[in-house]
Design a protein around this nucleic acid. Structure first.
Lengths: 125, 125, 125, 125
DNA sequence: GTGGTCTAGACCACG
DNA sequence: GTGGTCTAGACCACA
């Protein structure tokens, strides 16, 4: 899986990495049971420090996206994540703002929903 | 308009402020031509630093949401914002990630679109 | 509050720190709303690196023991923690082993319960 | 005796192994004079490294739980272990922290003692 | 060779 | 001045 970091961006590298891995999982590029490159390997591949990779991996672990096996390294989790109340609250808050801005900028409801629908389709196999 | 800052949140205060003002505009609580409290007033109301309010106002100005007049203070812009390519690209990127995570966490397409639809409805007068 | 780190111990420093802070809370030495020393201050006080302190603080934050306020630094949480299933399962597993060993080493049930009772009493105001 | 290793756990495999053997002894599943599977056998059974089993066995030997005989392999010790001061100090320290956390998380004294009592009962024949 | 821990030092965002 | 991020380099525990 190809990771693309934007070093100019103001979103931290470890966040960018975390997000791309999640997208990789959603897209099916990363299959359950599959193992990610070791922190050192991944760090070398994208030209960043291993601690930064470590941070991303640990966050993904905390979120339940992967488990860290002492023998095999980081492994994509097969078990579907639970739809926690916590997550739903955060999602709603994020969407709430995004939609408010979209509305202000003149992006109508239809258009917005169409955009979401189109984007979601990418993840359905 | 009531501003509610969560001081324990990870999102910077000036971002929270900016977002709430945008939501206020979207909800119609803040009408075009209406003027916001002065930087000093707003800072005192919420109990935050003057610079923080200033930063939020300036970002809103840069985004075209308000004009800053030396005499009248910050005024909500009446002119509808243009749907800039820049904005659309950013929106798409944000949504892309949000949807990927929603998908991973088991929030189906229907549910996601329904949620968006419901949230959007709040802004339609 | 006095922190005592055992540099010879094989339990990581950040874990020792985390535990002592929790004990401090339990003992009432650290009161809700009270703020901890800044990471730099604490690091200097106990003669360790600020990153190590940071790690402990962040774990405590993740566990809900404290919140990190942008203005005031790390603050002891007032809200009682919820008795999560997760925690109970871990506690039971830990106790299970501890008790098995106690039993093997000849520490009887009465003695064990008395010890627990005595230790618990320290935390009741 | 059935050994169950959680490869995704934070606790090292050799520690998990050691603990389960102690629990096995406490439960009476492993009787004095009984001999454990050979290092090689055990390693194969659980699917772990030979050195890992070796480490667990040696720790158990150091703690007096078993004797390692070149011909007969690892044998459960019949002699009751002594209640060393060392052990008692460690136990007290561990319990001290566990109880502090339990208190913070809202697990009352009664409940805690009941839990301990219940868990201890499993080991009394 | 793997991740985990710790240190040191630098820069930045925030308030 | 605060915490957050990133880098670099070192040592250790684990398997």
């Amino acid at each position: 899986m190809l990771i693309q970091i934007d070093f100019e961006s103001d979103t931290p590298i470890y966040i960018q990495l975390k997000r791309q891995i999640i997208q990789g999982i959603a897209l099916g590029e990363l299959q359950p049971e599959e193992s990610l490159p070791s922190v050192r390997q991944m760090a070398e591949d994208i030209g960043i420090n291993l601690h930064t990779v470590n941070k991303a991996y640990n966050l993904l672990k905390a979120d339940g996206f992967l488990t860290i096996d002492r023998r095999k390294g980081a492994i994509i989790n097969s078990s579907a994540l639970s739809l926690s109340e916590n997550y739903k609250a955060e999602l709603e808050e994020d969407l709430n703002y995004i939609i408010a801005e979209a509305y202000c900028r003149g992006l109508g409801k239809e258009e917005f929903l169409n955009l979401c629908s189109e984007l979601y389709s990418k993840y359905i196999k």
